[in-house]
Design a protein around this nucleic acid. Structure first.
Length: 354
DNA sequence: AAGGCGGGGAC
DNA sequence: GTCCCAGCCTT
């Protein structure tokens, strides 16, 4: 790469970043811990979504030691609604590893960072460069898109070799100082100017004169990405079961979808009223009243839940039930319920007002 | 290399 | 509806 091009690109990009960088909570006092937590939260998650979670997380769990000490249930409650819940579990595992193997200090080298659960190629680069100033790349979806356009690369960015090409280019472009700012500037450009879905604001871009995609007139068509496969649809029946002012919830398995989070009892398929009564009997619950509550739809990345709901008032319950019975306040304050059940949490709150 | 894993914003 | 987001882990 031409050394003059490199210098110009670095200067223009950093100049733009200095004048236009967004004010973000984790950019204020960027300690390794704050950078780490923010980078994990930001995985596949937008800045505006993360902000409030980051603030409350830092208040409740201000240090690595606090993170190593907090219960998983409490941690998942802090993560409630943010999604990709294995991130929270890995965060705690990593905190334990840092206390045990790294003397309570977040490591600064790529390899050690990479060894921690939840920290992959991108996050290790981001933490090493932003928190420690290491001269390493941090390549996320934004950077792939920006670089594909700058160099008019028509390769499929899902391809490993294409990613490697781009990584090599980023390494050539990395400055010797302010590496963290440079990496953040690349991402910031992708998030605010070099937008996806054929919608880049090239006219406002301060590096457009250095952008081959822009010069050739097809920046908006880049990057090339292979198509995603369609989602599977699953029908489910949700049961809101009340007994003496409490409602039944249960904890999901420790693996797979929404692992370890809490949910209302539910079954695959649309159950009729009779089938539901049979299921309740299996669970040792004797209903005094059954009625339909409401339908709801929840879309995951690879799955859709189409849900119907029953409201059940229980006359008696068995002791050895697989459920725990909690009041509305506990549902709201204590247990981490995924957003998929939002409609039924609301139903519960509405029925409680009457 | 491909698929599982949340939830939401923008169009 | 579609795309994709400061990705990582498992198979």
């Amino acid at each position: 790469m031409d050394s003059q091009f490199i210098t110009q690109f670095q200067n223009k990009l950093l100049e733009w970043y200095d004048s236009c960088a967004r004010i973000l909570p984790w950019r204020d006092n960027p300690t390794p811990y704050r950078v780490w937590i923010s980078e994990i939260m930001l995985q596949q998650t937008r800045v505006d979504t993360v902000k409030p979670y980051f603030e409350s997380f830092m208040k409740t769990v201000p240090t690595i030691q606090d993170l190593a000490d907090i219960s998983e249930d409490q941690l998942l409650k802090l993560w409630e609604g943010l999604g990709y819940y294995s991130r929270a579990k890995n965060l705690k595992k990593a905190a334990n590893a840092i206390m045990q193997s790294f003397n309570g200090q977040i490591p600064s080298d790529l390899e050690s960072l990479r060894s921690l659960p939840g920290i992959g190629p991108y996050s290790s680069g981001a933490i090493a460069s932003i928190a420690f100033g290491a001269r390493v790349a941090a390549i996320d979806g934004n950077v792939l898109r920006v670089m594909a356009r700058i160099f008019a690369n028509k390769g499929d960015i899902a391809n490993r070799l294409v990613k490697k090409e781009i990584e090599d280019l980023v390494y050539e472009l990395l400055p010797t100082s302010r590496v963290g700012d440079f990496n953040q500037a690349l991402m910031e450009l992708g998030a605010t100017i070099c937008l996806p879905n054929g919608n880049p604001k090239c006219a406002e871009c301060l590096v457009n004169t250095l952008c081959k995609g822009y010069q050739k007139g097809f920046a908006a068509e880049l990057p090339i990405k292979s198509k995603k496969k369609e989602r599977k649809i699953e029908q489910r029946t949700i049961f809101i079961i009340e007994y003496k002012g409490t409602v039944a919830i249960r904890q999901r398995a420790n693996k797979g979808l929404l692992s370890s989070l809490w949910e209302f009892p539910n079954e695959v398929g649309y159950l009729s009223c009779e089938e539901s009564e049979r299921k309740l009997k299996e669970w040792g619950i004797t209903p005094s009243h059954i009625s339909l509550s409401k339908t709801s739809k929840h879309i995951f990345t690879h799955l859709e839940w189409h849900m119907i709901g029953y409201y059940i008032s229980a006359q008696s319950i068995q002791e050895d039930s697989q459920f725990i019975w909690v009041n509305r306040e506990q549902v709201k304050e204590q247990y981490s319920i995924p957003t998929a059940f939002k409609a039924y949490v609301e139903f519960l709150n509405e029925s409680g007002k009457k």
